[in-house]
Design a protein around this nucleic acid. Structure first.
Length: 564
RNA sequence: GCGUCUGUAGCUCAGCCGGAUAGAGCAUCGGAUUUCUAAUCCGAGGGUCGCAGGUUCGAAUCCUGCCAGACGCGCCA
């Protein structure tokens, strides 16, 4: 960005135009590295200025070459620009060291509410929920970094007919306090499964489950008390897992929170004359939107998922007055969110631009029934175990016991988190232990390793890297050094793109590229042991890379490591 | 049946608001360690960009049709 911004400014000035966005969008890497550092595609701008691309390129070549800092060469409709390495490094590192934060967004500070993770407290936290959790948490950090006010909400699935089943099982078996307190989720899930199994042979159990859920809805003290216990211990367990992942929420307001707000929501839609009764159900027709009707009430009068969702959106608009309302929820619910958005739009609420369904592909090859479901905690444990194994194989580095525990935990989790963030959200993922826990190639540990190596170099240099204007950066003249500076330069634009597209994978791909560029540098340019000026210059460059890498990793929720 | 999404190297993917010779990782094969961590780096092979039309000076990218897969479509969430 720094380099592109600089170039764009010059191009705009030389032509006396104000098209910096278009120009920046047309600045690309040259097809061949030896052609230059940045290439300008002139097609779009030429068309805007009513010129032929080739002519524009030639004219720009002449104008820009009055500048001392670089060479410009027109090649057909392209303009290839070559900088001196020292110049690029100064441009880029000045920003990295002296202006590490992006400029704040214009006042008033925009607010974004992010609904993510949202597990069901009676069902195991499986690998499927990891995606929403990890993507949502990344978006949370990205928007915060960009200066937004961000509110993270865990919309727990803490209400529903399945609690009838759990309460029935509880009634039959009595409480296993140890299990409940240790892992409320696993306990309620197993209770659910056992009772559900019995219910398949015994209709009486189903009836009992319905009764219990009814009691719960009526506010029966006994039912509420037991439900509260299950909820409390499930959340306690969730928080432990979230802590391992370094994730926090501002609110744990689940579906039960909206239980008594649905009447108000239904009232609101009824007053707008949008509802009608069909076969005993209360519905909102959405024919104008080419969508099937939204169901608000079952024929027995009880509310549905969508009802509570409407209530939740109204509550959030009212409470947080957000500019964006993000729902990090899987693909299958696309229709659901379209309906919610349409119904509210019909009611005159301007929500279409605000309510964004940040959808993602689901995890294939995992089923609760087949028993192929993988529990997140087990997956994390396995990731950490494999990381530890890898560390024990390492013959050149020794670790204290504390280091072993800390590093293996961060590496294992880094691999796991990165695995869910490296591809575009929309893609379905076939779960595979070895792929999810890869430590090589395009992986979290690859990025952490690059960071650790930079730290290691700095440690061995016994110097503190610093940036000074007119410094020794002119010492740098290797292509690997220039490539590294150019890679660092793209960081701000990448973050903006990730936010614009609600797509953390943009950052993942970028960091892979940055780390790979560093690794190439590492293998061809020695830092420690160079003559003093070169040492200082290279330290400054790799520290710039490290700062950028660390920031990117933090945004994704991966720990940048000093040693591994 | 209708709708949404996906289809690029053996596998997993990037590139998709049109532009220079379609890029990575894994896997396979061959190399690199007396110097800052080999969880790394270098090299090789590997492609009808699902198929067929269309728009354009130019299409993996835009439009249409078809094929394949995933998901969704009134009383689960």
């Amino acid at each position: 960005m720094y380099v592109k911004q600089y170039l764009s400014k010059l191009i705009n000035q030389s032509l006396n135009i104000h098209e910096s966005e278009m120009v920046i969008n047309n600045l690309v890497p040259p097809a061949q590295p030896e052609w230059g550092d940045v290439a300008f595609k002139t097609f779009q701008l030429a068309s805007k200025l009513n010129l032929k691309p080739v002519e524009l390129a030639l004219s720009l070549e002449q104008k820009l070459n009055q500048n001392q800092e670089f060479k410009a060469k027109a090649t057909g409709p392209y303009l290839n620009i070559t900088f001196s390495t020292g110049f690029i490094c100064n441009l880029v590192l000045d920003h990295v060291f002296n202006r590490p934060s992006p400029p704040p967004p214009p006042e008033p500070q925009p607010t974004v509410v992010i609904d993510f993770s949202s597990p069901n407290i009676a069902k195991p936290f499986g690998v499927g929920h990891l995606r929403s959790t990890v993507i949502g948490a990344a978006l949370y950090r990205i928007f915060k970094y960009l200066g937004y006010k961000v509110i993270g909400i865990n919309h727990l699935g803490d209400w529903g007919t399945n609690f009838g089943m759990i309460l029935t099982g509880y009634e039959q078996e009595g409480e296993n306090t140890t299990q409940l307190e240790q892992d409320g989720i696993k306990y309620s899930y197993q209770l659910y499964v056992r009772t559900h199994h019995k219910a398949e042979q015994d209709q009486e159990i189903n009836n009992r489950a319905r009764e219990w859920f009814n009691k719960l809805e009526q506010g029966d003290p006994k039912a509420i008390e037991i439900w509260k216990r299950f909820r409390e211990f499930s959340i306690k367990k969730f928080k432990q897992t979230y802590q391992r992942l370094g994730i926090e929420f501002d609110h744990y307001t689940g579906e039960s929170f909206y239980q008594h707000k649905t009447d108000e929501a239904i009232d609101f839609l009824q007053k707008k004359d949008l509802t009608e009764v069909d076969q005993g159900m209360l519905i909102v027709r959405l024919d104008q939107y080419d969508l099937p009707p939204l169901l608000l009430k079952k024929s027995d009068g009880s509310t549905l998922y969508a009802t509570r969702e409407i209530a939740a959106v109204l509550y959030r608009l009212d409470t947080f007055n957000p500019d964006l309302l993000l729902y990090v929820v899987g693909n299958p619910q696309e229709l659901h969110f379209k309906q919610i958005s349409a119904a509210l739009d019909e009611a005159g609420i301007k929500i279409k631009e605000k309510l964004i369904h940040v959808k993602f592909g689901h995890i294939l090859g995992m089923s609760t029934r087949k028993g192929t479901l993988v529990f997140l905690d087990d997956l994390i444990d396995e990731a950490v175990r494999r990381a530890k194994e890898k560390m024990q194989e390492n013959k050149t580095i020794s670790y204290s016991e504390r280091e072993m525990d800390f590093i293996s935990s961060k590496v294992g989790i880094g691999a796991l988190v990165f695995n869910d963030l490296k591809t575009k959200r929309i893609k379905d993922i076939e779960f595979n232990w070895d792929r999810a826990l890869s430590f090589e190639g395009e992986s979290g540990p690859y990025l952490q390793y690059a960071h650790a190596r930079i730290k290691s170099i700095i440690r061995k240099s016994s110097q503190i890297p610093r940036y000074q204007p007119d410094s020794v950066l002119d010492q740098l003249n290797q292509p690997e050094e220039k490539a590294l500076a150019l890679a660092i330069s793209d960081f701000p634009m990448i973050i903006e793109q990730a936010a614009r597209e609600y797509e953390p994978s943009v950052i993942s791909r970028y960091l892979l590229d940055l780390a790979s560029t560093f690794s190439k540098f590492y293998h061809s340019c020695q830092v420690v042991g160079s003559k003093p000026e070169l040492l200082e210059a290279r330290l400054c460059l790799i520290e710039g890379c490290r700062i950028t890498l660390a920031k990117g990793l933090e945004l994704l929720g991966i720990e940048p490591l000093n040693k591994m």
